[in-house]
């Protein structure tokens, strides 16, 4: 029985991986720093640990979907991330893809 659970958790991880990027992009039309993003996503039911989010933010920045800026005015310096124009475009396109994917998958599930 445990192998079924393990398999499911492995597959869920794969499914979640893509959705996390959509989640992150969705929240960055306003600048956010890493930990505030963790809290916001948590609140909305998408849990991601900081150890995954922080490297992901850097990767998205490297892919030019995000822009970043250090804010040193607060009590501690924080790196804020914001959608780049390209990131905005990519996000909108991703949302359309996501919706069409959902409807296809739902179709398949209902028919079977």
């Amino acid at each position: 029985m445990s192998s079924v659970k393990e398999t499911i958790s492995g597959l869920m991880q794969e499914l979640r991986r893509g959705t996390i990027i959509i989640g992150v992009l969705s929240q960055l039309s306003e600048p956010q720093y890493g930990y505030s993003l963790v809290a916001i996503l948590e609140e909305k039911g998408i849990s991601i640990d900081p150890g995954t989010l922080y490297p992901l933010l850097r990767r998205l920045e490297k892919q030019e979907l995000l822009e970043s800026k250090w804010d040193t005015n607060e009590t501690r310096p924080r790196k804020y991330y914001l959608l780049s124009p390209m990131g905005k475009e990519v996000y909108e396109q991703l949302c359309l893809e996501w919706k069409s994917m959902i409807s296809s998958v739902e179709n398949i599930i209902e028919q079977s």
């Binding site: 890493g34 930990y35 809290a39 922080y54 850097r58 250090w70 310096p77 924080r78 790196k79």
Partner: peptide, 20 residues
Amino acid sequence: KQRADIEQELQGLIEDMLEH
């Protein structure tokens, strides 16, 4: 090249997590 940046970011993150 990335080290200093990541160091500072992690420092901030850990402080945030502790505060939380």
